[in-house]
């Protein structure tokens, strides 16, 4: 898929909360201290953070880099599976906080971990069609796993925001995108349920790998690109193993995915996951670099996108904190404080 008019990213911003829960803490509490862990540690939101506050900071960073007046943003779309309200948009909170209201479109998106990239794809179309000069998209989550479940090691918090505009203003130009979607119930949460249900090994081959690989191959076939054409790539990162295997299967090297692979130190930020990988890559990319992003959302589907970095990256990149600045800012907490911060203590 490629819009009629060329579009791209004109500003981007990351956010990762300050607190970290080492996987060893979960092993200590639930496995008696012995066991393998899928990652080293995950980012935990502070008691005053939620998907909206994460989205706001990421959006402000994106706005700083874009250098445009917020009133010119014609759409504010926030993708998340942890919207603070069941009914009431997160996007209006974000739009108000950054000063994009009232003449703007706003909406919340939901598609498990790819809620942000589907909003991004739609924004490309929205801007290319001329319906908006700029569109802001955010993927942000404060994901929860059932205590003791394997998901608890990785379900984390973070987000990334992008301002989409026309190609001539872009720091990274969109080459094309491709989506691959089927009805695959690998992971879901019913209304009113606190924690999601997942299919364990069913989340692997029939879900993650089938969709990620098909979307990546579909995109490259459409564009006529091959893995070696890409300086860097990010695949949705629910853990470290899955994106590593997907990359290898497709023919990408470890070197190509190293920059965007953050799961080991921040966990799976869900809607923020692949989008944070892209902010990390943009933080270091050079003009002319080609970047690949492949998201995955349970339920299930993948969006793949290909970007070429422009020379505008150099002047804009320093206008906001880097992804690694947030990752370096870390305060380790124990399971007790984690349980308190995440509201898992029964208080009433």
């Amino acid at each position: 898929m490629k819009p009629i008019r060329d579009v791209g990213i004109i500003g981007y911003g990351a956010y990762v909360p300050r607190y970290r829960l080492p996987a060893s803490e979960i092993v200590r509490v639930w496995k008696g201290g012995d066991g393998d862990t899928p990652i080293t540690e995950k980012a935990v939101p502070g008691p005053d953070e939620d998907a909206a506050t994460i989205a706001i900071e990421a959006a402000r960073n994106a706005l700083s880099r874009a250098g445009i007046p917020p009133a010119r943003i014609g759409a504010v779309w926030v993708g998340s599976e942890s919207h603070p309200y069941a009914v009431k948009p997160t996007s209006t909170i974000v739009a108000e906080a950054i000063g994009a209201t009232p003449e703007t479109q706003a909406g919340d998106w939901e598609f498990a971990c790819k809620a942000g990239t589907e909003a991004m794809q739609a924004a490309f179309g929205f801007v290319a069609s001329g319906m908006a000069a700029y569109a802001l998209i955010v993927g942000a989550d404060t994901a929860q796993g059932r205590p003791g479940d394997e998901l608890e090691y990785t379900a984390s918090a973070g987000g990334a925001a992008y301002i989409i505009g026309l190609a001539d203003e872009s720091l990274a130009r969109l080459e094309g995108s491709y989506s691959y979607v089927t009805d695959t119930p690998d992971f879901f949460r019913r209304p009113g349920q606190e924690y999601p249900t997942h299919g364990s090994r069913f989340t692997g081959d029939p879900a993650y790998f089938r969709h990620v690989l098909a979307a990546a191959r579909g995109l490259m076939e459409q564009l006529g690109t091959k893995p070696s054409d890409y300086r860097m790539a990010v695949f949705h990162q629910p853990n470290v193993k899955f994106p590593e295997r997907a990359a290898k299967t497709l023919g990408f090297t470890d070197e190509q995915i190293r920059t965007g692979l953050l799961a080991d130190v921040i966990g799976n930020t869900y809607a923020g996951s692949s989008l944070l990988g892209l902010t990390a890559m943009l933080d270091v990319a050079q003009p002319g670099d080609r970047l690949l992003l492949v998201s995955f959302g349970s339920g299930a589907g993948s969006d793949a996108m290909s970007f070429v970095v422009t020379d505008k990256i150099a002047e804009r990149r320093d206008r906001a904190p880097f992804t690694q600045d947030y990752i370096r800012r870390r305060k380790v907490i124990d399971y007790g404080l984690y349980v308190r911060y995440r509201g898992k203590l029964k208080m009433h």
Binding site: P47, D48, T53, D318, R319, P321
Partner: peptide, 28 residues
């Protein structure tokens, strides 16, 4: 930064507002 100030009970409004934190990156 904009953060949650308070929640008016489990079924009430979430109140957001300004808080301050140590400067994350002085050079920005």
């Amino acid at each position: 930064v904009t953060r949650k100030l308070t929640e008016e009970g489990e079924d009430g409004l979430i109140v957001y507002g300004y808080k301050f934190r140590p400067v994350l990156k002085p050079a920005v």
